[in-house]
Amino acid sequence: MRKSLKLALTLVAGLTLGTASLNTAKAATWHKGTPKALRGSWIYHRKQVSQFGQITFTASKYQRQDQGMPQTKGKHLKYRYVGHGTYKIHAYIYGAKGTGYHNGWATMTIKKHNGRIQPKGDLWFHRGTL
């Protein structure tokens, strides 16, 4: 009797620990909307060539306007924190009708450092409006 009780308790303890180890934490999950750290209006200026641009993030939308380029917008945003102030943002990007801009899903990587943001392969933006 005692031997079977010990065996049953050992089996229950083993199953409990086994199922607990299967439920791992998902630290890198996608979250709806945009991170609070990126929300607001961001601009850049290049005085050498008189160039400017602006990115605006709200809770669920994205908008970008660069000088001489059609305005693009994004909706259905979700984001993931990658680490070291870097975010991946996945959105449905679309442009104004008649601009020839192709609509579709896109993922962009944005790094935030010292109060500025930098979309991957782009210039540094700082807070402000045009």
Results as ranks from 00 to 15, higher is better:
Arg2Thr: 10
Arg2Ala: 08
Arg2Trp: 10
Lys3Asp: 12
Lys6Glu: 10
Lys6Phe: 15
Leu7Trp: 11
Ala8Lys: 02
Ala8Gly: 06
Ala8Ser: 11
Leu9Phe: 14
Thr10Asn: 06
Thr10Gly: 14
Thr10Lys: 05
Leu11Ser: 09
Leu11Glu: 00
Val12Gly: 07
Val12Lys: 03
Thr16Arg: 04
Thr16Lys: 06
Leu17Ala: 13
Leu17Glu: 05
Thr19Tyr: 08
Leu22Glu: 07
Asn23Glu: 11
Asn23Trp: 06
Thr24Ala: 11
Ala25Phe: 11
Ala27Ile: 14
Ala28Phe: 15
Thr29Leu: 08
Thr29Pro: 01
Thr29Glu: 14
Thr29Tyr: 12
Trp30Ile: 03
Trp30Ser: 06
Trp30Arg: 05
Trp30Gly: 02
Trp30Ala: 06
Trp30Tyr: 09
His31Ser: 11
His31Gly: 05
Lys32Gln: 12
Lys32Arg: 08
Gly33His: 05
Gly33Gln: 04
Thr34Arg: 01
Thr34Glu: 04
Pro35Met: 00
Pro35Ile: 01
Lys36Glu: 10
Leu38Arg: 01
Arg39Pro: 13
Gly40Trp: 11
Ser41Tyr: 06
Ser41Asn: 07
Trp42Asp: 05
Trp42Ser: 02
Ile43His: 01
Tyr44Gly: 03
Tyr44Gln: 07
His45Val: 07
His45Gln: 13
His45Ala: 05
Arg46His: 09
Arg46Ala: 06
Arg46Lys: 06
Lys47Pro: 09
Lys47Ile: 04
Lys47Val: 14
Gln48His: 08
Gln48Gly: 03
Gln48Pro: 00
Val49Pro: 01
Ser50Asn: 15
Phe52Thr: 11
Gln54Ala: 01
Ile55Gln: 07
Ile55Val: 15
Thr56Ile: 14
Thr56Trp: 04
Phe57Gln: 04
Ala59Thr: 10
Lys61Thr: 15
Tyr62Leu: 08
Tyr62Phe: 15
Gln65His: 13
Gln65Lys: 12
Asp66Ile: 04
Gln67Leu: 14
Gln67Lys: 13
Gly68Thr: 06
Met69Ser: 14
Met69Glu: 12
Thr72Phe: 07
Thr72Gly: 02
Thr72Glu: 07
Lys73His: 13
Lys73Val: 04
Gly74Leu: 04
His76Tyr: 15
Leu77Cys: 12
Leu77Asp: 02
Lys78Thr: 08
Tyr81Asn: 09
Tyr81Ala: 10
Val82Met: 12
Val82Arg: 08
Gly85Val: 05
Thr86Lys: 03
Thr86Trp: 00
Tyr87Phe: 15
Tyr87Asn: 05
Tyr92Thr: 11
Ile93Glu: 11
Ile93Tyr: 12
Tyr94Asp: 06
Tyr94Ser: 08
Gly95Gln: 07
Gly95His: 03
Lys97Phe: 03
Lys97Gln: 12
Lys97Arg: 11
Gly98Ile: 02
Gly98Pro: 14
Thr99Tyr: 03
Gly100Thr: 01
Gly100Leu: 00
Asn103Tyr: 04
Asn103Thr: 15
Gly104Pro: 06
Trp105His: 14
Trp105Asp: 10
Trp105Thr: 07
Trp105Gln: 08
Ala106Ser: 15
Thr107Gln: 10
Met108Lys: 04
Met108Asn: 08
Met108Val: 13
Lys112Gln: 15
Lys112His: 04
His113Val: 09
Asn114Val: 05
Gly115Met: 01
Gly115Thr: 04
Ile117Thr: 13
Ile117Pro: 03
Gln118Cys: 02
Gln118Lys: 15
Pro119Lys: 02
Gly121Leu: 04
Gly121Ser: 01
Asp122Pro: 07
Arg127Met: 00
Arg127Pro: 09
Gly128Asn: 02
Thr129Ser: 11
Leu130Tyr: 07
